[in-house]
Nucleic acid binder design. Structure first.
Length: 283
RNA sequence: GGUCGAGUAGCUCAGUCGGCAGAGCAUACGCCUGAAAAGCGUAGGGUCACCGGAUCGACGCCGGUCUCGACCA
């Protein structure tokens, strides 16, 4: 926001898997109405909480936003968020497609036969794809087999995978906090969300007609509050769980982006505006 | 003050007949192209509360000390 306000014409493109949901405002720390009035934001509030949402949906919306910004001579500032979603924009992916009937069969088989059996089958059909995922990772294995069986083409033939980093027309800057400072900020953030009414927000969403979709209900904060509402956890257990899971997620984000050699890292200690702005100004 | 129980990895706890110290979670590191705020893997980590004793050998048995908890007075 500080950068966008100083540089008229800047528009923010949100690259975040959960802020796309309407009415999920407190728990996703969605930008305020004031911020959204001051600077154009894209890719917020795209679908209802009852809808499933995936990378492909986000890529379509984000690319449309980038085209529109470019056509009016503006400059896009992408904020992530969700590592895979950002990769799909910076390194355009050929997403292979979906075969729901094939997937349904595979999901039944994985229950009966176990992930290792399907991993062996994938190794026979597409050794490269099999080598890229752990034998216990049901979801990735099912997906790779869905594509290979459904399309008749090896899953790995759809792209180089995630470990190839080509030059891109984006400047990439990463923000990194010391772990203990990060932890303290997350704890404060969780308390603030609870004070702001996160529990009521989740309770309200569950009573809407569509409820919370499979993807929406796994959002940090929402999943834990659902456990609270169903009596599986106390308030203090819920607060602790949200803080723990958020901290683990933040570290996982750091590890995801850390692999990308194109990212310039900025170490932040207390004031992100002071440390980050000068770096962005040079771009 | 007395009786009983407990003390083992950062946390919660297993540990059979005395024979190489274990799990889950946490932490660190890594993987993952239509669930990605999801999913998966690898590793590090120990004065077995402390002191002494018997034994070839003790987390385990014996004696004592400390700490915590419950109950009794």
């Amino acid at each position: 926001m500080a950068y966008a306000l100083r540089h008229p014409g800047t528009e923010i493109v949100v690259v975040d898997a959960m802020q796309v949901y309407r009415h999920m405002d407190i728990g996703t720390a969605k930008p305020s109405a004031a911020d959204r009035d001051a600077v154009p934001h894209h890719c917020l509030d795209l679908v209802d909480p009852g809808d499933d949402f995936t990378v492909a949906d986000h890529t379509v919306a984000a690319c449309a936003a980038l085209d529109a910004i470019e056509s009016r001579g503006g400059r896009a500032l992408l904020v992530a968020g969700t590592g895979l979603y950002l990769r799909a924009i910076t390194d355009p992916m050929e997403l292979p497609g979906r075969w729901p009937a094939v997937r349904e069969q595979l999901e039944q088989r994985v229950q009966l036969e176990g992930a290792a059996a399907l991993h062996a089958e994938l190794a026979a059909l597409d050794p490269v794809a099999a080598s890229r995922m752990e034998p216990g990772n049901e979801r990735r294995i099912v997906r790779a087999l869905e594509v290979t069986l459904g399309s008749g083409r090896q899953f790995s033939s759809f792209g180089p995978g995630l470990d190839e980093y080509r030059p891109v027309p984006f400047e990439m800057v990463g923000l990194r906090w010391q772990r203990d400072a990060l932890s303290a900020r997350i704890e404060a953030r969780v308390r603030r969300m609870m004070d702001d009414g996160l529990v009521d927000e989740v309770a309200g969403l569950r009573h809407r007609p569509g409820g919370l979709s499979r993807t929406a209900s796994q959002a940090l904060g929402y999943r834990e509050v659902i456990d609270l509402l169903d009596g599986r956890a106390t308030v203090s257990e819920t607060v602790d769980a949200i803080a723990l899971h958020t901290r683990q997620y933040a570290v996982r984000q750091e590890r995801w982006f850390r692999r990308d050699p194109r990212v310039t890292w900025v170490e932040v200690h207390d004031d992100p505006e002071r440390t980050l702005l000068p770096v962005l100004e040079r771009r």
